[in-house]
């Protein structure tokens, strides 16, 4: 369980905070979606929830981050890494830059944890099979397509076997097939009790995956509720978030005088 309580965060060298009094709770096995317009503070919230702000990038955090009931304050970055991981949008910057093959790239995290070789290899193989990367394990991680690189980046996180996973725009580089694979991998993680927080533009994906959705605007939480409830909210578009296709289609049908409930039944 990952819990933020009254988090107000200010970057180093800046006078004003970017996040204001954000409270958020991601239970065990729960996938929470995070949406909001550009510059609403989504990426900052991801960094704060991962503990890297302030542990790595400095700045000032008021409020608390607790992981499974214990506070994350004062933990060093490698101690945080055993509890919570975060993945970013640009797959190029997530490469370690030292691995000759995809296998070594994915194995780097477990290796850094100081695990015995057998355990490292087992975790790496498991992460590879979850994202169906068997065909590219021997490839040079520098020479991958954007989608493949993003999948390798997510596999590298899975190999850490974290209890909490935060993903900032994980599918930005992915085609529909890649997006589906990532979705399945996240559902499998949640089924094992992992807490997941996913910032995403693709509300269709969130609609399918999430139990809850949080809407952020100007650094404040403006909606927090069940996925269906938040995504059906008629004011969602005014908050800078594009509703998923299901909602738009239902509305279009209703607008044209049809029966939205019949459409729901078909879609479900």
């Amino acid at each position: 369980m990952l819990e933020l309580n009254g988090a107000t965060y200010r970057y180093a060298g800046y006078a004003r905070p970017v996040l204001h009094e954000v409270s958020l709770r991601v239970g065990d096995g729960e996938i929470v979606g995070l949406v909001g317009p550009n510059d609403s503070g989504k990426s900052t919230l991801c960094l704060v929830a991962s503990g890297l702000a302030p542990a790595s990038i400095g700045g000032e955090l008021k409020g608390t981050l607790t992981l499974d009931g214990t506070t994350a304050a004062g933990l060093r970055t490698f101690e945080l890494a055993e509890r919570v991981v975060i993945g970013f949008q640009n797959p190029n910057t997530q490469r370690s830059g030292i691995a000759a093959t995809v296998f070594e790239e994915i194995a780097l995290g477990p290796m850094n944890l100081g695990l015995p070789v057998v355990e490292t290899v087992a975790r790496t193989r498991d992460a590879i099979s979850r994202l169906r990367l068997e065909a590219i394990v021997e490839r040079d991680p520098q020479r991958l397509s954007g989608g493949q690189a993003q999948l390798v980046g997510i596999a590298s996180l899975l190999a850490m076997r974290p209890r909490h996973v935060i993903l900032d725009e994980p599918t930005a580089q992915l085609d529909p097939e890649g997006t589906r694979l990532v979705g399945e991998a996240l559902e499998a993680l949640a089924a094992r009790g992992t807490s997941l927080l996913v910032a995403e533009h693709k509300t269709d994906l969130l609609d399918r995956l999430c139990s809850r959705i949080v809407v952020l605007d100007a650094g404040r939480v403006v909606r927090d509720g069940s996925a269906g409830g938040v995504l059906d909210d008629p004011e969602l578009r005014e908050l800078g978030v594009e509703p998923p296709a299901r909602v738009r289609l239902t509305r279009a049908v209703a607008h044209a005088g049809g029966d939205p409930r019949a459409l729901e039944a078909v879609l479900r």
Binding site: Y11, A12, G13, Y14, A15, G58
Partner: peptide
């Protein structure tokens, strides 16, 4: 960007504090 520079161990001493 200042935000980038300031995160290095000696960044703030090297380029000074930002006014903003």
């Amino acid at each position: 960007s200042r935000r980038f520079v300031a995160r290095f161990p000696q960044g703030e001493a090297a380029v000074g504090l930002s006014e903003g």
